[in-house]
């Protein structure tokens, strides 16, 4: 047995000995006739940085929306801190939602509020922190994402990458013990990507926060991930085609996974999402 496989097994053992924060069982989501997620099973343990990856349209963001309780699946269970959120009402979900932060792909900042007001919103609405302290926390969170002094600007006055950083500061406002991120580094320059990755690593490895990250950015994924799952597309649509620690994923010979990680144009991942035959479509059904 090699040293590598020993350390990989040891990492897996360490991971599984920790508390389960999220448990997904037989999750199925359909949009009309299309099956988006088909029998998804995985666990996220405390302190994990779980990476969800896969090609465009494979259901990554749909899976994330299920995990935060935004939509209800067709079948299956999602246990968050032991509670099955698929059977919970909005009112029952709220206490759980106060325990996690969510970074949306678009940032989803409230355009009518300033950056400072956006970050202070969860603090003022969901905590009993004194308003004077809230101002201090806003400044600290902005410093964390490198945007000190931007609190009085409106979201429309800053760039897309800066909006993403403000959204991250807002997601971290209540110091959540679980962070969901949808493409956290999309639109960021390489230096800022490294800063956000380092921040995620610091929060998870030093402070014990758990993170679930949907990303296409393989450099970032291998830098921050402690466990990875890849969703398939085409004939494997909605299924997990590979999972494991970053070391296991790097060694996995699955051709779809290799093509995705290496960013190759040729391979088994279907480029066409259309289910119609091209020539039939071109010439018409008649």
């Amino acid at each position: 047995m090699t040293l590598d496989s020993d350390s990989s097994k040891s990492a897996l053992h360490d991971r599984e000995s920790k508390d389960v924060v999220i448990e997904v069982k037989d999750l199925v989501v359909r949009f009309g006739d299309r099956t988006i997620l088909d029998g998804i099973n995985f666990k996220v343990h405390k302190g994990d940085t779980m990476i969800i990856m896969g090609g465009s349209g494979c259901g990554k963001s749909t899976l994330l929306r299920q995990l935060i309780g935004s939509t209800v699946p067709d079948s299956g269970e999602i246990r968050l801190y032991g509670f099955d959120i698929t059977r919970m009402s909005e009112k029952e979900l709220d206490p759980l939602r106060k325990r996690f932060g969510m970074l949306f792909q678009s940032g989803a900042l409230l355009q009518s509020l300033t950056i400072g007001e956006n970050i202070s919103l969860p603090l003022l609405e969901n905590s009993k922190v004194d308003p004077a302290i809230v101002d201090l926390i806003v400044k600290m969170k902005l410093e964390l994402v490198g945007l000190t002094g931007f609190e009085n600007l409106k979201p429309a006055e800053i760039s897309g990458g800066m909006k993403k950083r403000v959204a991250l500061a807002r997601a971290l406002a209540l110091d959540p013990d679980l962070l969901f991120s949808d493409e956290p580094t999309a639109g960021l320059d390489p230096v800022m990507t490294a800063v956000v990755d380092k921040l995620t690593c610091d929060l998870t490895r030093k402070l014990g926060m758990t993170a679930v990250v949907v990303t296409h950015d393989m450099t970032s994924a291998f830098r921050i991930g402690t466990y990875m799952i890849m969703l398939g597309s085409g004939p494997h649509q909605g299924k997990i085609i590979a999972e494991g620690t970053p070391e296991e994923i790097k060694k996995n010979p699955d051709p779809m996974l290799r093509q995705f990680i290496n960013g190759e144009a040729d391979g088994p991942i279907p480029l066409k999402l259309s289910q119609d035959d091209y020539f039939k479509h071109l010439l018409g059904s008649g």
Binding site: I68, G69, S70, E90, L93, D94, P95, R97, K98, M102, F104, S106, A108, L109, L110, Q111, L121, P122, E125, N126
Partner: peptide, 17 residues
């Protein structure tokens, strides 16, 4: 409506607001 399509309303829900 614009807040809805730009995910701002979903963001409020997720923040338990």
């Amino acid at each position: 409506g614009t807040m809805r399509v730009s995910e701002e309303i979903e963001a409020l829900r997720v923040m338990a607001i």
